[in-house]
Structure formats: structure tokens, C-alpha cells
Simulated scan of single mutants.
Amino acid sequence: MITEYQGVWVFIEQSEEKIEHVSLELLGAGRKLADKLEVPLAGILLGDHIKSLGQTVIAYGADEVYLIDHPVLKDYRTESFMKGLIFLAEKYKPEIILYGATPNGKDLASAVATDLSTGLTADTTMLDIDLEKRLLEASRPAFGGNIMATILCKKHRPQMATVRPKVMKALERDDQKQGKIIEETISLSEESMRTKVLKIVKDVTKISNLADAHIVVCGGKGMGDAKSFELIQELANTLGGAVGGTRDVVEAGWLKHELQIGQTGETVTPKIYFAIGVSGAIQHVVGMKNSEMIIAINKDRNAPIFDVATYGIVGDAIQIVPMLIEQFKGALIEKGGEKTYA
């Protein structure tokens, strides 16, 4: 019976006894859902020597933590983690389970959904509750990012979704918050595992620094052409920031796909975000709206980007960006061997 299922769960992804930030973001989102449904929010911790993380999960919003500490769960494997999560889900019957849309999160969520014969919405960017029907409204881009699709799981439980990192906001840590840690045991043996972890190799490939950048300079088709778009790179270099672009820019071949920002690209939350020649379509805004400060430059004073901007400049970016570069270079000074601004 669907009515037997209650509670919102967040799978807490951790590595080397450190919680991945997307899980803290999901605790913030899960807190809102749980409060609407008037049910507890729980974090799910699976691993080896991870008991010390339980209080951290509570401090970031959880009322309860379901914890399985077992040597076989030391490193992530689909089989072992799936068994642990399914054991807990069948015993406690959660209404909703959220996972980070990370490689491990997506792998685990799909395996659990298959085994529990329930639905799963992937790469969600918005979450809400239809309170009357107690349905999770999981929204995600569809048809190449041209529309937003809201997906419901009406007949099966738990309702599940993977959520893109940096889309949700984590709550402020509250170490005074009280909660309950529920330790469970499960029968697992290394011999029964079909896969073995022989060695973990750290990723040394060169990847986009967009996700971690404090300053992001994003250019749109309003820059006119590939030559003019080079001003975006120059401004980013001057500020020590990262370059990003809209989907139109990527499709025009001015920028590589991994530097695209928006629903079908990266989600960023820098301290300062420059949106230059960017119109502000919802497909783009969802990927940067949580930036601390947004500075928009656009010729069209009615451009939607100004609705989310902290500061707006109405004018031709081709003329304005060189003036910004000149001003920033003029203010650049050397201090203690590092570049800073006067």
C-alpha cells in the first residue's frame, strides 16, 4: 500500500570519510520537502568507519540518520551499496529518496529503482510537492533543454530522483541540532561480491574549472562572432576567472561543450558571475541563478537576464568589455607574490 510509505530520504555520498557537497545540498532541498509533507528527513549513510559522519548529516538538516557501517562498504560498488539501501528501504518504507546526479549516485539510483520496481527521474533541476496527492514533482530539461518536463511517479513507492550538483542550496550548519542515529546491520561478505576493488586511481585528466571557479565570465550570442567572443576570454584571464558560454555559443562552435552553462551544461555558483551578451533564457538561468553576484551586460534593456542580475549595464558589450578589461588591469597590483586589486 502506498500509504505505508512515509519520510524523505537523502542518500549521503561520501568518500574517504568526507561527505560530497551535493549531499549537503540535497539535505537542504529535502528539508523543504519533508516540512511540506510533515514527515522526518533522513540521511542514509553507507560505508566503513563512517559513524562520525552521522552528526554532520544532522547538523545539515536531517532529523534521522540510517547508518550501515561495514568493511564491505568501504569503497563504492553497485552491488554492495544497492543491497544496503534496499535493505533499509524495504524495512522503513520511505516516501521519497533523493540522490546526487553524480556517477555513483546515478548508478546506485538506477539499480535501486530497478530492484524496487519504482520510477526514477534523472538529472532533476527543480523539486516540489503536490501536497494534495503527496506526489514528488521532479522537473528536468527535456527535448534538448527546450522545455521543462515535470515527472510524477503516481503508482509506485518510493518516489526517486537524482539531482544535479549546485542546483540546490545547503542549509547553514547547525551543530546544536538534535537528531537520531539508527545503526543497522546487514549480512555482507567480500566473497559473495561479484566485483572487487583492486585499486583506486585518482582522476588526473584536465577538466573544466567552471564548477569551482570564484569568478565566471559567460558570453552569449550577443557577442556577435567568434572574434569578438575572445573578449570574454581576455576578461576572464584578467580577473583570474573561468570562461563559460550559452548553448547558442557552443552550437556556433565558439566554445567547447564542456564550458556550456545551463540546463544541458554545467551548473555554477561562483561569487561573481558576468553574463555578457546573454539574453537570460530560463534554460541558461537555471544553471547560474544561485551565483552570489550577477553582473549583466546587454543592449536590450528588457532582456530577461536583468531580472536575476544584481547589477545591470545596458549597452554594447563589444564597447563595454574592453573598458572593463582596461580598468581591471589598471587596478591590478602585486602583493606578496600574488595578484590582487587595489
Rank of each mutant, 00 (worst) to 15 (best):
I181E: 12
G277V: 12
E234L: 13
I333V: 13
F306K: 10
A275F: 00
M1R: 13
A331F: 07
L67N: 06
E172H: 10
V57Y: 03
E90R: 12
G144R: 06
I282A: 01
A59P: 11
Q233V: 15
E334Y: 04
K177V: 06
I325V: 12
N290M: 05
T310H: 08
L135W: 05
I207W: 13
T78K: 12
V22L: 00
K196V: 10
G219N: 07
V197D: 13
A331T: 04
S117G: 13
Y92A: 10
G144P: 04
I320H: 06
K169D: 12
L67A: 06
V167N: 00
A236R: 04
L108Q: 04
A101C: 09
M293I: 14
I305A: 01
E191S: 10
I282Q: 03
L67D: 05
K206Q: 14
G287Y: 02
F143S: 10
G119M: 07
G287R: 02
A331K: 07
A149F: 13
D107K: 07
E292M: 09
A281F: 11
V243Q: 03
H156E: 09
Y99Q: 02
S228P: 09
I58Q: 01
E95F: 05
K74G: 08
K133M: 07
I294M: 02
Q55M: 08
T125D: 00
K169N: 11
A109F: 05
M288E: 00
T121C: 03
G245F: 02
